[in-house]
Design a protein around this nucleic acid. Structure first.
Length: 300
DNA sequence: GACTCGTGGTT
DNA sequence: TAACCAAGAGT
């Protein structure tokens, strides 16, 4: 039987092969581990901020076991200000699991990947597709927007419909593993550089002729919008400030130094406690505070 | 399903 | 300038 790649997917793939951005983790020779690291870092964080951190990270920890052997403090310092530092802890934990339970080899099976810390539906499929060239429907915010417009003719993606979203993307993928992986990358790239949230560049779009949204006259999105998360005054901001002090410190920090970053005492203490619970900070026996927590790799 | 978890560039 | 947005995951 003949199974022809849908025009939309085929055009997106051709466009991607012709002019994909030259991102560090797309270079030939990038290992599945490199892909996994990039996907962790790219969760909710822009490409431009991730790139330099990824480069240094892969030089220092080129394998899961190498990262597993590092201390939490070193991992958190290398993570720097990428944000959501719990991701760094989860990546560290995933590396430990991969090193000890999977022979230091990143799993290629989506279900196995999803069982690892910090790896959800998106990251598991991204690793399968971009790390191993497998056919896997990769659904992120970019892809959901591209599908919402090009396929459904809507102005934007509504709230996530996990199962339906996966099915929508699956329907676009050709049978071949290698070609499907390219289409997955292409859909993400389209959403990232052409079919963007605010001002889509439809005149540059390779699937312009196949786009249901364009055909419908680019109607505005009318569905519900998730309220943008505030930041000023939140626990996230306070935790960020506390962690910033600990990251910069070369020696254990006295409590007053942490007290100085936020005037609201109860909130400050609650946040510090949450950092301890998350393993992002630790209290020494003499009552001071340090980055990270105890790990096998920690020395002196 | 709603909420939480960082950070900083862009509009 | 305040709002918006950025390759999500866990609870």
């Amino acid at each position: 039987m003949t199974c022809v790649t849908p025009p939309l997917a085929g055009r997106a793939a051709d466009w991607f092969r012709a002019q994909a951005r030259d991102l560090p983790w797309r270079r030939p020779g990038t290992t599945p581990w490199g892909v996994l690291v990039s996907e962790f870092m790219l969760q909710q964080t822009p490409v431009a901020r991730v790139a330099p951190v990824w480069e240094r990270w892969m030089t220092e920890w080129p394998t899961p076991s190498a990262l597993a052997a590092a201390s939490r403090a070193d991992v958190l310092r290398a993570w720097g200000k990428l944000g959501y530092p719990r991701r760094a802890m989860r990546l560290h934990a995933a590396a430990e699991a991969i090193a000890s339970e999977h022979g230091d080899r990143v799993p290629s099976d989506v279900d196995v990947l999803e069982s690892l810390p910090g790896i959800g539906s998106y990251t598991a499929r991204a690793v399968a597709a971009f790390g191993y060239g497998r056919r896997a429907p990769v659904v992120d915010t970019n892809v959901r927007r591209v599908v919402a417009r090009a396929v459904h003719g809507a102005g934007d993606a509504g709230p996530a419909r996990t199962k339906a979203d996966l099915a929508d993307v699956d329907a676009l993928l050709p049978e071949s593993d290698a070609e499907a992986a390219v289409v997955s990358a292409a859909l993400m790239e389209l959403g990232a550089v052409v079919c963007t949230a605010r001002t889509p560049r439809c005149t540059l779009c390779p699937v312009h002729a196949d786009c249901a949204w364009v055909a419908a006259g680019r109607p505005e999105y009318t569905g519900p919008r998730r309220p943008v998360q505030g930041f000023a005054g939140t626990d996230r901001q306070v935790r960020g400030r506390l962690l910033d002090v600990l990251r910069a410190a070369e020696e254990p920090v006295e409590k007053p130094a942490l007290d100085a970053v936020w005037s609201d005492g109860p909130q400050r203490d609650r946040c510090l406690d949450s950092l301890l619970v998350d393993g992002l900070a630790e209290q020494t026996t003499d009552g001071r505070f340090v980055l990270g927590g105890t790990t096998p790799g920690a020395r002196d």
